[in-house]
């Protein structure tokens, strides 16, 4: 009897669960299919043809891919853009995520005003990157911008410069502005992760006489690895797909001498400032960018997951 009841109950529970799961997943799956899978497949399909304006022409197989990779100046712009995306990623990891971690640790150790600062640091989140870009390009303008004005007023005349006009400073400025906007993200994730570390581990370390520095690196940081992994992958995807902020700061050409040219801008130019075969070529480029970002994200995830430890 009992076995039967359990089996029947279990059976019913499974059945209900399955239906519920389906009911809950279906809308998301539909949206995902419609807005992610369909465009992706369409882009792949479009990329296999030559286009004349909006008229689909002959089938060219991987011809558009070859065209995009070999045609001057795209053949030189693609590696340059990749390099800039890479630098942007490294810079963002080094600045945005390090500062985010630092802020998280400070707020965790000193909970006074925690709510307030959490809100303050996350506030730029609410502004569209385009607006952030325009605001910063106004702030940094050499003719009218307050940043240079302030530097001059305090006697740092030699520091005042056309920040977004010089190829050497443009990309670092991009990294800083981007970090200014998103630093709240890693901070919140790290804060949550820090809260999840059992107190007794830290107490044990303290009992063993470990310094605060040692406690952080030997106890807390290894336990933060899952958060580090998530943030690294998200940062990577964000950095390799960046478009709006760079566009607002440097226009579609990627700033002075193309110093901020990234894959997103390259795609934009190919698609919207391209010639007759713009649809074919930009689709091919989009698929290549997707393959790159997807491939590296998967590898990154694998590598980082292997380094995770559990308390």
């Amino acid at each position: 009897m009992r076995r039967l009841a359990r089996r029947r109950g279990g059976y019913r529970a499974n059945r209900v669960a399955w239906r519920w799961i389906a009911a809950f997943c279906l809308p998301a799956l539909l949206l995902y299919g419609l807005f992610v899978v369909v465009p992706l497949v369409t882009a792949f399909y479009y990329g296999l043809f030559r286009w004349e304006g909006i008229r689909q022409g002959e089938f060219v197989g991987l011809g558009n891919y070859g065209e995009v990779l070999t045609r001057y100046p795209l053949s030189e712009e693609i590696p340059a853009a990749l390099w800039h995306n890479g630098l942007f990623f490294v810079g963002t990891m080094a600045i945005q995520n390090t500062v985010g971690l630092g802020l998280a640790v400070l707020l965790y150790r000193n909970p006074r005003g925690k709510r307030f600062f959490q809100t303050v640091f996350s506030l730029p989140y609410l502004i569209s990157p385009l607006i952030v870009g325009y605001i910063w390009s106004l702030l940094l303008s050499p003719s009218f911008g307050p940043v240079n004005f302030m530097l001059r007023t305090v006697g740092l005349d030699s520091w005042a410069r056309p920040w977004l006009g010089e190829p050497d400073t443009a990309l670092p400025v991009l990294i800083l502005v981007n970090a200014w906007q998103w630093v709240g993200g890693p901070m919140l994730i790290f804060l949550a992760a820090l809260g999840g570390i059992p107190r007794e581990l830290e107490e044990a370390a303290a009992m063993d006489g470990a310094s605060a520095f040692r406690t952080f690196w030997s106890v807390r940081f290894p336990l933060l690895m899952p958060a580090v992994g998530v943030i690294t992958v998200l940062t990577f995807i964000g950095c390799f797909n960046i478009f709006d902020l760079v566009y607002a700061l440097g226009g579609s050409d990627g700033g002075p001498g193309g110093a901020m040219d990234v894959l997103g801008l390259l795609y934009y130019r190919t698609a919207f400032e391209g010639g007759t075969n713009a649809i074919g070529e930009s689709s091919a480029l989009a698929i290549m960018i997707f393959a790159l970002v997807f491939g590296i994200s998967v590898v990154l995830e694998r590598v980082l997951r292997r380094r995770e430890v559990t308390p």
Partner: peptide, 21 residues
């Protein structure tokens, strides 16, 4: 072209002219 012309945008240049700078 003016000091720090490297950073002068189109709208900056327009404003420099219309403001008499």
């Amino acid at each position: 072209w003016g000091p720090q012309f490297e950073g002068t945008s189109y709208t900056d240049a327009q404003a420099l002219f219309t403001s008499g700078k």
